[in-house]
Design a protein around this nucleic acid. Sequence first.
RNA 1: CCGGGUGUGGCGAAACGGCAGACGCAACGGACUUAAAAUCCGUCGUCCCGAAAGGGAUUUGCGGGUUCGACUCCCGCCACCCGGACCA
Length: 1069
Amino acid sequence: MPYNFTRIEKKWQEHWLANKSFAALDPADAGGMPKAYVLDMFPYPSGAGLHVGHPEGYTATDIFSRFLRMRGYNVLHPMGWDAFGLPAEQYAVVKNIHPRETTAKNIENFRRQIRMLGLSYDWDREVNTTDPHYYKWTQWIFLKLFNSYFDPVRKQAMPISHLQNELFNENLIVGPDGSVKLNRVAEGLEEIAGEVRIERLWRELSPAEKQDVIDGQRLAYIDEVPVNWCPGLGTVLANEEVINGKSERGGFPVERRPMRQWMLRITAYADRLLADLDGLTWPEPLKEMQRNWIGRSTGAEIDFDIAPPDGDAQQSGAGAKGPDSVTGDPSVSSTPTTIAPGSDDSSLAFTVFTTRPDTLYGATYAVLAPEHPLVDRITPSAHRESVQAYRTQVAARSDRDRMENKEKTGMFTGAYAIHPLTQKRIPIYIANYVLMGYGTGAIMAVPAHDERDFEFARKFKIPIRAVVSPTDDFLKAQIKAFAKAKGDAPPDISLPMPDGSMVHYSKLDKATAAKVLDAHRAASASIPARIEAMGAMGMRQLRAEYVADANKWFSAFTGEGVAVNSPLINGLPTAEAKQKLIAELERLGAGHGSVTYKLRDWLFSRQRYWGEPFPILLDEEGRPHALDESELPLVLPELSDFKPTGTPEPPLSKAKDWLKVERGEQKGRVYTRETNTMPQWAGSCWYYLRYLDPHNDKQLVDPEKEKYWMPVDLYVGGVEHAVLHLLYARFWHKVLFDLGVVSSNEPFQRLVNQGLILGEMEYHAFATPDGKWVSAADLNDLDEEAGESGVRMIAIHKQTGQKLIGKRLTEDQVEKAGDGYRLRSDPKIRVDARSFKMSKSRGNVVNPDQIVADYGADTFRLYEMYMGPLEAQKPWNTRDIVGMSRFLNKVWRNFTGDPEEDTSPPKLLIETIPISEALDRQMHRVIKKVGDDIAALHFNTAIAELINLNNAMTGLSPLPRELAENFILLLAPLAPHLAEELWSGLGHAKSLARRPWPTFDPAKLVEATMELPVQVNGKLRDKISVPADADEATILAAALAGEKVQPWIAGKTIVKKLYVPGKLVNVVV
RNA sequence: CCGGGUGUGGCGAAACGGCAGACGCAACGGACUUAAAAUCCGUCGUCCCGAAAGGGAUUUGCGGGUUCGACUCCCGCCACCCGGACCA
């Protein structure tokens, strides 16, 4: 009889719950126990229920938590529900059920499924982001963001009142664009002679202007910016939620349109978010993804003046707008048109951002984004029509179009810019490859050293001027590219000498190479032709060719090198050239060093019902006013019609009674509530803090508890949150840290990504006799059929029921296996076995309920952990589960002798007898190995060790008690139900959850005699048995004396004898 | 195109620079059984020699290198997977 896992698992799950076996102790009760905070990424409780990917990470942290409890740690291991969000609402809309109901039902199902896996959560700490007791604090954090600003001097968040003081005291002044800067003049730090002062002092501002300045500095602010509007979902989305122009959820098209939205100033934290990554124990690829997403690039901003128009009529004010109106938002303070003080339209200028200021001398044209506001003002009338046509054409194309078709297009504006160093005129283009949203919306184009500029310059026949001397690798690649274009093998990099011999390029002296080069130069004109004629030339000569004329080469050299053709910086390597050039620009007042980021501010509002309401009132002018903390939570109003309106008007605007608020202190003044709601990420940004003190209604978290538990010691979850949740949560945590709410700078010290579990292997396609390829999705019963001359692939077409015969395989492509044949792994066979992501549409989703019902939770846990390393991506294989089931049943038989009767507690065949020496040694080795493996999260090898030990115990009856106890304790974190049941069979009344982990005796890890491999010239030839304490001389002598070694060394001189202690002997002859 | 990861038997996978393939699945042989399942014992990378015991060669995507010794470290390619992509 297999063991009764159904009864046993139910029994222990109830026991753990009733006895609160896994409760974490508050710091006051923990005594001297070390703490461990082990966290899972809490799930979004979808209607589909748990899939097999969830239990992978959850089981891993559960094993780790159980292990640490047995090692004497006070472990916090909680679970909760990330329950606000789009899918619940969409489902609710379709079924016309209130999202609260569907959410409650889904949570119940998830809780049942998670409990059925026997995970050791402290259920008294469960949180739910949709519970008003919870989102009260989400709103509270939002108020903190709203009432704070990022202080540029301290580089941290400060209360907004501090900003007001600084402005009032005139330590800070207000720039023309509403930005706030240090009052350097007042501080006496800087006095710029002759420059018109355009900043303003606080007392010079009107009350409305003052309010604009304050509101413009908040960490949570309202702004009108181009956002990702998704008509399919009826809401705007964050950049992180848009993938290739489609929504992450649902895959609906997304369009850019300007809208008034709440933003969070995450960009202020870009540098800290980047720098603090270094100290985190996270997977390096994930850190790299965050670095890329933040996208810090250092370089320079360089100013270009517009050349006076030549002959063309001066542009009138007709179609031209005045200077940009003040946006009120300093986050877009890099206003592209910086108008010099006292300037007029005759001295226009624009600023570009570049990471390669050292290539400035190579700038042969400039490009503005088509939307750039300066375009209207610089385009002479002769070009106005074509420019306008081009702009219309670009504007008409959706983002998605632009993604798919990347061909560079552009139009000459007819205007010229003045190169700041050479004072020469360079043409100004507009082009689709320059984006208004990045940098300054304008570039200097250096075709010789930028791929995009190169491609554009080729197309528009603009000169290409090399200013960095290229590397050998680049030049070789150029030769290869040429050979490829011709369809030949790359020419040998050797030079034919006048006498007909060949000399490798690296061995050429300058004079000889030059002579040969001249000969070839006479013969052919173009550089590619010369390369072909010569096979190759010396690298020095190639380089000289490139520097002299880069126009005819194949691609841009984008690497670092030595500056050439650049009077100020010639001969300097790139890094130094950059520095010197920036210094020179600053001296000339034509530019300065600068940093830009790809990271944008976080778009924080959604036009949906099922989310946290903003604790904000809007006055008649649309200015935001915060609710008082005492008014929280602001509960989401009941709505029977919660459907999206299909317009940017949020559903909450339908809650008429709720909408209007009359404030007591300002009688008669009516405010309107903010009707947007927060995105799903809001609740998940800080849930790990609430677990520490989940029932506290006075504080988000008691500082004592926060200090005790934080940071999280192990956080396990999928890589899909690399730039969403994990970046947002770090941002909020840093703000809370700055404001003194939490004591740690980073929330998650150690993070592990569990690998994706893919669906079962599938045949992808195979060749039919008529040469057509059939998709596996259309096939049933793919099989092989033996025939006279080999094996044919047989499949049944799903729709037609037609029997498809695959390509006939020859005998060398198959091998005999029993009655039938089986394919050899021969790449010529076109049968493609692959596994894919589990998905409903593919029909390869595995339901954990079924697996647990068939095999039990312990088997399911072991199977998922045994599949491979936690971090690896691996395919599900139902066939393999039986292996773990057999293992547990074999444990059961070894302990109980497999009785017919199912008694509880079970009767065990155990006696207090000594353990045989070999088994004792193995037991100590396994105790060490399993402990080390679990600590390192290497569960697959830990299980393998236990299987080995269990196999060694097979046939041994009765079992020695010491061995039995240790085995059960080692098994306990991995298969807790069976372990508890066997433990009770040993006569223990209490759960083993906090039993001390077994210890091993180091003395028993070493064998008395050891077997050493003996190699001759690195090849294994023999094995010798020697006492463990034998000295080197004895061992070497024994090795050389070995019968099997003799033939290999006889008659040869021994060059070297090598003994690696405890490992092997190697003899070199 | 850029960045990151992976590549080992029929499959999932092990292996501080030191006996490649632990452990599991599948397959094959045997025991038990009227039979099957379950269970237990055994074989199991590939090729060659041998009746057998055994022996030899070869093998971690491909090509080089470092080393007494390389799955492991270095250089160059190839394939697949995951991210990001006109980011100046």
